[in-house]
Design a binder for these strands. Structure first.
Ligand SMILES: [Mn+2]
Ligand SMILES: [Mn+2]
Ligand SMILES: [Zn+2]
Ligand SMILES: [Zn+2]
Lengths: 139, 139
DNA sequence: TAATATTTTGCAACAATGTTGCTTTTTTCC
DNA sequence: GGAAAAAAGCAACATTGTTGCAAAATATTA
């Protein structure tokens, strides 16, 4: 596990530092997405608030994580699939926010649907966020 | 025009006040959505910042406007169609953010697409935000 | 219309979130 | 191990959002 983290950092030409290891480990040990606040709380005792911001920004720039926009206006982040490396994001999946447990998941197998726009509009990206009750909470 | 504003407020059991008239007029005179910041700037000389927040919240509660989540995490608001009144929102349209002019539009004629979720998930709401270049900017 | 009850506003104070410059520390590379 | 480069910490600040309360405006009733 620990080696995997170093691998990810090196693969992205990032130096291996405590905060990066810590924050990356948070993502790897959690299925869903993490809100900025969660990360700050869990990493914040050991690392400065500013460092958390800069680390997350670095990870987004490198294509290691991606931001998920939600209705309550609190950014969440989740790990990208491997083919996002290099600063270009290719996340063609949708996101699911559970109103019951509050978790946010990447539904990697659900492809973003086609959207027929009126004439004149051109598309560069489509974001789909579904709200509802997740698998675990429906049991 | 001014009578229309009063009508909307009265229909929603809201008392007619300066800030509500002003903010509502901003929405009626603009095709697209307004960011909170825009509203604060345009209404802020005359009204307190807190009043702007409370007015927008009131409008959302009443179903006069709805919030649009965007990737840059700045809430935008747009007028609801008439059938939203009463605090229940029924906005089954998608939103379009133009990367060129920065405007955000409700595409009222584009119905939210069906999304096939994995077994176990249940849906209560679907948000679709498309980014690209708008009609006006493509000309 | 005037008096009263209700609602809204502004203000102040505060909390939370995000940003920047600069110095010190850590990491990388030779 | 030492030099160069990168990251972290710190402090200060800016922006955004929230709350309680007194004053003002609006609605209601007589
Ligand atoms: Mn995702
Ligand atoms: Mn809309
Ligand atoms: Zn759940
Ligand atoms: Zn445009």
């Amino acid at each position: 596990m620990h080696e995997e983290i170093k691998d990810i950092l090196k693969r992205n030409n990032l130096s291996v530092t405590g905060s990066r290891e810590k924050i990356l480990s948070l993502f790897l040990s959690k299925a869903g997405a993490l809100a900025h606040g969660d990360i700050e709380k869990k990493a914040g005792e050991k690392f400065d608030r500013v460092t958390v911001y800069r680390t997350l920004q670095t990870f987004v720039d490198k294509g290691i994580i991606h931001a998920i926009p939600t209705a309550d206006n609190s950014i969440r982040y989740a790990l990208c699939k491997d083919d996002c490396s290099g600063g270009h994001h290719h996340d063609h999946h949708i996101h699911f926010v559970c109103n019951h447990c509050g978790n946010t998941y990447c539904l990697d197998d659900v492809v973003t649907p086609e959207v027929r726009l009126p004439n004149g509009y051109t598309t560069s990206q489509i974001e789909v966020v579904v709200e509802g009750t997740c698998k675990a909470c429906n049991k």
